[in-house]
Nucleic acid binder design. Structure first.
Lengths: 149, 149
DNA sequence: ATCACTTGCATAGCAGGCTATGCAATGTTA
DNA sequence: TAACATTGCATAGCCTGCTATGCAAGTGAT
């Protein structure tokens, strides 16, 4: 069977994602940030004190990934975790002052990287690209044989 | 500054890539394959005996990533590495019989996963999605400040 | 109140990506 | 030919994602 990687959506998606990651990394590592922390920070900049479960739900990553990411963020002085007052299982996540101070430059860096990456597309193409990605994400349904429960 | 992750190309690209990866994984782990090996196999199924440098050039990943991937592939009995006859630095990569036998089912799995993932898009949208991703990749240029110097 | 179930998080261990670095083989040049 | 530079690959160490598993805290049923 013929199968050219440059006609494979999965291959191309992986390639595009890697390029974005590298590009953003170059801009934010000087601030002491990394790409994995970014979505978490975006949520917390809107409102912190959320639970890990809420963050997992908002970001579509696995619970264990979130726990690991928060470990690194705590190590790096971006967040602190504190038990919920009424439910001892729940950890709420709070931003440090340092993390608050990074919002403006970090968001500017991400916006700049997005703009640069899409600069080869026309304006309508950019909108369409985002639309199509959202559509693919929204239309996702677990593969038929994924965990055949 | 306002910055919504669902309007960020980088965030969406990462999300889409993760979904594709998970989907493909579910289909090929039963064969003893994993997603990182896939692009390498595609190249080698076309013609094996290539050098690591050639593979790196064909796939747009870093040399160290390729070396690690080939380590796993060799461990799993998919390839063997043999020194080039005339240049002692060069390692040529050869498929095992097992890897050859996997071509048909693996390619079918990838094609099926691509089809399923794009099933929420119209036919023209699918073509456009691929076009836009190729365009983003092709138009990539190193960020202005990437390694400045 | 106790036993079982559920829930929320942490940890272990792996894949796959990266940068930085080391090193042997080859090339080049004086 | 000896010294230096380059090339091709391997390794170390990290981040970010995943699954599998463990465990403490809460919930429910009896």
């Amino acid at each position: 069977m013929k199968f050219e990687k440059d006609k494979s959506a999965g291959y191309l998606a992986n390639h595009v994602a890697r390029l974005f990651k590298r590009g953003l990394e170059a801009r934010i590592t000087p601030m002491g940030l990394s790409t994995g922390t970014f979505p978490v920070l975006l949520e917390l900049w809107q409102r912190d004190g959320r639970t890990q479960k809420q963050l997992v739900g908002a970001l579509g990553i696995e619970q264990a990934t979130m726990a690991n990411t928060l470990n690194r963020m705590e190590r790096d002085g971006l967040v602190i975790r504190r038990k919920d007052d009424t439910d001892g299982r729940v950890q709420r996540v709070w931003l440090t002052e340092r993390a608050r101070g990074l919002q403006t430059p970090a968001v500017a860096a991400a916006a700049a990287e997005n703009a640069r990456a899409l600069s080869g597309l026309t304006i309508p193409e950019r909108a369409q690209f985002l639309d199509l990605m959202r559509k693919v994400i929204a239309g996702w349904q677990p593969p038929p044989d994924s965990r055949g429960g």
